[in-house]
Structures are given as structure tokens and as C-alpha cells.
Write a protein that binds this DNA or RNA. Sequence first.
DNA 1: ATTCAAACTTACCTTTTTGTACGTACTTAC
DNA 2: GTAAGTACGTACAAAAAGGTAAGTTTGAAT
Lengths: 137, 137
Amino acid sequence: MKDQKLNPAVSGLTLTEQMQRGQVFAERCPSRQVLNHVTSRWGVLVLIALLEGTYRFSELRRKITGVSERMLAQTLQSLEADGFVLRTAYPVVPPHVEYSLTPMGEEVAVRVRELADWVEINLHRVLEVQAAQEVSA
Amino acid sequence: MKDQKLNPAVSGLTLTEQMQRGQVFAERCPSRQVLNHVTSRWGVLVLIALLEGTYRFSELRRKITGVSERMLAQTLQSLEADGFVLRTAYPVVPPHVEYSLTPMGEEVAVRVRELADWVEINLHRVLEVQAAQEVSA
DNA sequence: ATTCAAACTTACCTTTTTGTACGTACTTAC
DNA sequence: GTAAGTACGTACAAAAAGGTAAGTTTGAAT
């Protein structure tokens, strides 16, 4: 009931949400780990890529410039373990494996993409700040 | 005009945004670095914390359980360099320094918090998936 | 006189993450 | 018959991130 004491941007959360909120600040909360998976260097890019549709392993590798096979495999596995990515393997030779988002994966990916979009769109503002600080430094 | 070919979640972007989109997939794009700053282990937590208001260094340290002084200082510096965090030092002894979000910082932080909120609120779903996979593994 | 507190910085060391290179199994292309 | 493509696993090495502990500065409290 003392919601108004908080920053206005914080209001709009239900009581349940309020109670859940703040757990990330706790050291041992598993939410930190899940968050680390989706915000990991390659996790972010994989999620955004898969929002566009289904991709094969090597297609993803070509799309996400700079990932090693090892890292891509590892990232996909952790996202699969969290239930964000669906792996479909067709038992043919050469192997054919498709990756897509689960419904839950889409939900996170949308948020991740919004963040990435903001960064891309506002990148020039950040670069301006950085440039301005170099001068005054 | 062929927006409909894309995943519906992707539409709603302007042409300019469409053109900017995809730069993150390029290896050397600076947006990747900025993204790494805000999605870094401690960066996420600092941004969310500062959405609640202004904090002093040691207050942040107590709030974000598990950060070392070294990491907190480093994180704050990179966020300041990107123009997301405003550092205000009062020349008194002992030192008094306040950290808050710049307008630009609030914009990112809101997105970061939405992502973190989703994770916290849906954590149980993730844990259920993880538990189910352990059985079948 | 000694301790404490703030907000760091620095040196040193450990842990985690990431990359490189190679191996695998099988088939198609040259 | 040799190379290439597919989707990885694995060993080793380098790089990056992170932690620990100590030092700094100055005034106020004990």
C-alpha cells in the first residue's frame, strides 16, 4: 500500500510480483543462473536469431558471426535444458538438426530482442557519450 | 512491404530499424559490446537496482549480494562510460558518492528489468522443465 | 594514539569462459 | 581417392572475469 514511495517505473507490479522481485539480488537464487544463460554473450544472439524461425546448426553458425562450434553447441544445450530451445534431430546422413524456440523461449526472446533493439537503435547515443568523455578525460 | 513473410513478432519495426537490425550479428559491431555491458552478470543487477532510485556505493554493495568491491566499481565505471549511470561525488571526508541512472540509463534499465521480471516470475516453469529432463536423461 | 568509515585502487591469484584444433561417421561431389 | 559438408565431442590453451586482501586519504569518534 506504500507503492507510491517507490519509483513510478516500479509500480504496476502485482503483490505476488513484488514479492518475487528482488530475489535476483539474492546470491544463490537460481533465477540468476537462468538470467545468465539468456543474457550470455551467445545466448542473446541465438534467441534473437531463432525468433526469425527455425535454423539448422550450421545456419546459425553462419548467421552469428564469430561463434565457434563449441560455444554454439554449448549455448544451445543450456537453452534447451532451460526449456527455451527445441532441438529436433532427423536421423539421416549427413545429420540434420533443427533448432527452434519453444513457446516459453519465444516469451524470453521477445524481451531479449527488445533490449537488443534498443541498444542497436540507440547505439549512436552511446557512442556520442563515449566520444564526449574521451575529450574531457 | 513483405513484412508478413517475417515472424509476426518481428513486424512493427520501421524500415530504418529493419536496416539496423542484424548488426548485432556482425562480429565487430560495437553494439555487441554495449549489450555485453548491460547484460553482464553485475550490470543487469546494478541497472535494476538503480531503477529504484539513487544509491551510494556501499548501499549497492549490500543490496546486490555477492558483488565484490572490485567488480561493483568496474561495472559502475563501464555503465558510466556508456552514459547509463551518473556518478555524483560530494567532496567530503569520508567520501560520499551517489549513483543514479541517466535518462538513457532508465530506458535500457526498463528493458533489462522486464527481462529479469519475466525470468523471476516464470522461474518455476524453467525449473519444472529442468526437473523433467533430469528424469528422462 | 588508535580505530573506523567511505569509496575506491592495485597486486596477485583462482575460476570461468571462450577459442583452436582435431576426431568421428557417413555420403555426395569432383 | 580425396575433399567437403553435417553436427557435434573432446583435449588443450589462452583469455577474460572474478575474488581476496591490502593500501590510500582524511576527519571524526573512542
